[in-house]
Design a protein around this nucleic acid. Structure first.
Length: 263
DNA sequence: ATGACGGTGTGGCACCGA
């Protein structure tokens, strides 16, 4: 079983690249962020033609998330229950796998803009609500994956210039503490279960030739529950799509589970 | 370096992302 997450920065623009990538990298499900599409404009037909069931939760211009899967998802949830939010940032669903079903939560965490901004306050409130909801989800779904664009670089080794970024958005102690609180629920950062190339990033600024200079951040993550951890076989960032013409500024992250375990 | 690039909406640009 393979899962992936990708901030596509406009699905309308990136649909051909997404389909191309999915063709070359067969996954069982993928969560998308920043689709920037209202649900009436979501490309269900194009995806279905390639065999993808899609659950979408979008809005105009900003945000928007989706869950694509080979098998239809069940128990679909939009945003964090009980947390009033006019921004479309979360989609969850249960997808059947070879070793039992997996609860998938796809999330587009708020950017936060700057540590002294109202948007940062919202980011903290949003993460508080996510934390509490994920705890209840874990209770009902021990096999759970929380993945998406977290907009947090958890450690200095996830930042190309930790000195310049110290205390800046994505690197504040508050955001990193929130990330640790999620791990404390019994989740593990799948990427760090394995030896990885140094300077592994999932996002590079469009400006400044950042990709060419490999100046980036690792802010897209896949967290897996304790019940799934023994079955994690690999996790990697595929930076190849960042080399495309007109790429997303984010690269997909992929996790593979050992599917040969007891069903 | 109040910069840069790219997407959106709808506009002659502003706003947002990270």
């Amino acid at each position: 079983m393979k899962l992936a997450t990708w901030n596509v920065n406009s699905l309308a623009v990136r649909l051909p690249q997404l389909l191309e990538w999915l063709n070359a990298h067969p996954v069982d499900a993928i969560v998308l962020q920043e689709t920037k599409l209202t649900d009436d404009r979501f490309p269900h037909a194009e995806l279905l033609a390639e065999g993808w069931q899609a659950q979408c939760f979008g809005q105009k211009t900003y945000n928007g998330v989706a869950l694509l899967s080979r098998e239809p998802a069940s128990e679909v949830v939009h945003n964090i229950p009980g947390f009033g939010d006019d921004q479309a940032r979360v989609i969850a669903g249960t997808v059947a796998g070879a070793s039992g079903s997996i609860r998938i939560i796809g999330a587009y965490f708020p950017n936060g803009q700057a540590p002294d901004s109202d948007k940062f306050v919202y980011k903290m409130r949003w993460q508080d609500a996510l934390h509490d909801w994920v705890r209840t989800e874990l209770a009902g779904h021990p096999q759970l994956v929380l993945m998406g664009d977290f907009n947090v670089a958890p450690e200095d080794r996830d930042v190309y210039d930790p000195v310049a970024w110290a205390g800046q958005i994505h690197c504040t102690p508050e955001e990193r503490a929130q990330f640790q609180r999620l791990l404390a629920l019994g989740l593990v950062d799948a990427f760090r279960l394995f030896e990885q190339p140094p300077k592994s990033w999932s996002w590079w600024d469009y400006r400044n030739l950042a990709f060419r200079k490999n100046q980036g951040l690792r802010i897209d993550h896949i967290l897996v529950s304790q019940a799934l951890q023994p079955r994690v076989k690999s996790c990697h960032i595929d930076k190849a799509p960042r080399k495309n013409e007109r790429p997303s500024d984010h690269a997909p992250v992929v996790v593979e589970f050992d599917g040969s375990g007891a069903a």
